[in-house]
Design a binder for these strands. Structure first.
Lengths: 282, 282
DNA sequence: CGCTGTCATACCCGGCAGGTATCACCGGAT
DNA sequence: ATCCGGTGATACCTGCCGGGTATGACAGCG
């Protein structure tokens, strides 16, 4: 039938996230009454009740929950369309590659060198971003391709090309008794009484429960470990940034980590295809 | 910056597909001048030339090409949002499963039975569709999940769960000399002088080149083979519809075919998760 | 029993989407 | 050469609808 306007979707997402017409209107830079009316119109057009107005606040219905997810995806697609079009016009074939700070230096170096050696290689701009942000950058059209790590990052909706699979190591102060061992189990790593495992933020930004300190980048981690305050379990290649005060011991039963190239599924860019081809031959 | 309106995207896609403002306007049910103006505004907002107006018709620029793809994806997402929301409101937890006519009867039967045996199983509506249409149904929000076949169908952008991998067989008239063989190679199957291989439409609806007749469904195929006019190579499980006049011989080096469950990557429906869980344990 | 905070209603206004008429331009037939 | 048909662009007008302000209805609460 009729396709929803992005304006309607934007309005609905704001209300669904705030669960409050006044605040949502403020966030949208408009007055509350037109927003109320717009949502009513949306509900009439869909023939669906999206919000339960229960004096004192608003709640999403099941259908509203569905629309919230779908609307976010549709809005991402629309903004990505604009961004990718602008980028295509301004920088022609340039590729933007998103990567986590501090991960897989050597692999990325190899990939970029191999790609640069290709005939007709496009410029590649490397975009450093925070942990777990690559997916958002891809979805919003800010990047063309990203270096991600399974099983940590969310790859749904992307095409992928695996590059390298590796085990994980436990990093601890060099002098620690366990540092002599050839390998550890997760249970052993988690059971060290004076060295709790440091905790990374999850995809949504919250931290898993546990006794260890909360960290948000590798510098913090390195510091904590060197000080003898925590132990960490990370992919073996992240080894590169270790200091003299650190020791690394393989953890035999930790899940393997795969470094993967990911890009939007429907992408048709020729330079991207070339980069993926190079990656596949690494 | 500012996010594109679906109206603008709709207009642009119409013009980009027709490469003709007049026809595009007609298709959109409006007059030509406002459409011209809308496209100009879109170009100004993006700061990008999308169309090369070369008296006598219109051509897409490289950036226009990019926007055409992105806009289609965004429009699909928007219409899918509307449809899925309506479905969620009307039929609650019902699942719509899209499948090719005539493929994988038994496997589907097993899957549906196993799912129905689950506690709190939702209703499942099976939607038969033409060859290669499943992806479109999923993208447009008409179906929640689809039974597809790798490597034939386009799975980009979907999450998947493989169900079954099988070889392919050559189907020919029962009396043919080759029908006695235990297995064939592709070269042998293709080289039978009096039995050219029938040709299927590709994803875009065109046919690959070759001497064999063009077919578009299994009934036509069965008929052609029984009449001794063609030979076909199909997944072993499609065997089910063979007539007495047919013989099937495994083709040793044909690519293996995997029957796979596919669904939109960002889907969060509980009944779907259950169905996938059941499928994984099959 | 007002007071406060919520969302909905009533009413008005201005901008912009869309329509009609027309222009500018080019290619080709005569 | 010249007119004609068909292209997209321009000019101008109009009505609708998106948005603003003022206010109402209603519930919880001190």
């Amino acid at each position: 039938m009729d396709t929803l306007e992005t304006r309607e979707l934007r309005y609905f997402v704001a209300v669904a996230e705030e669960l409050h017409f006044g605040r949502a209107a403020e966030r949208l830079g408009m007055a509350q009454p037109p927003l109320s009316r717009a949502i009513q119109q949306l509900e009439r057009r869909l023939g669906v009740t999206l919000l339960e107005r229960d004096r004192r606040g608003v709640a999403l219905t099941a259908a509203g929950e569905v629309l919230l997810h779908e609307a976010r995806a549709a809005l991402d697609a629309a903004t990505a369309a604009a961004r990718r079009t602008r980028r295509a016009a301004q920088h022609g074939d340039r590729l933007v590659l998103a990567t986590k700070a501090g991960a897989s230096h050597e692999l990325l170096r190899k990939l970029l060198d191999a790609y640069a050696a290709e005939p007709e290689a496009a410029e590649v701009e490397v975009l450093m971003c925070g942990i777990g942000e690559q997916a958002r950058l891809l979805r919003e059209g800010r990047a063309d391709v990203a270096l991600v790590h399974r099983p940590f990052d969310d790859l749904s909706g992307f095409d992928t090309q695996d590059l390298l699979t590796e085990g994980q190591v436990a990093v601890m102060p060099a002098g620690h008794p366990l540092a002599m061992r050839d390998s550890l189990s997760m249970a052993e790593a988690a059971g060290v009484p004076d060295l709790p495992i440091a905790r990374w933020p999850r995809l949504d930004g919250s931290y898993p429960p546990g006794p260890g300190p909360e960290v948000k980048d590798q510098a913090q981690m390195a510091q904590l470990v060197a000080l003898g305050l925590a132990l960490i379990v990370i992919p073996a290649s992240a080894y590169a940034w270790l200091w003299a005060e650190h020791a690394a011991v393989p953890v035999s039963d930790a899940p393997a980590v795969t470094t993967t190239l990911a890009w939007p599924a429907h992408s048709r860019s020729l330079p991207l295809a070339r980069l993926v081809g190079v990656a596949a031959r690494l």
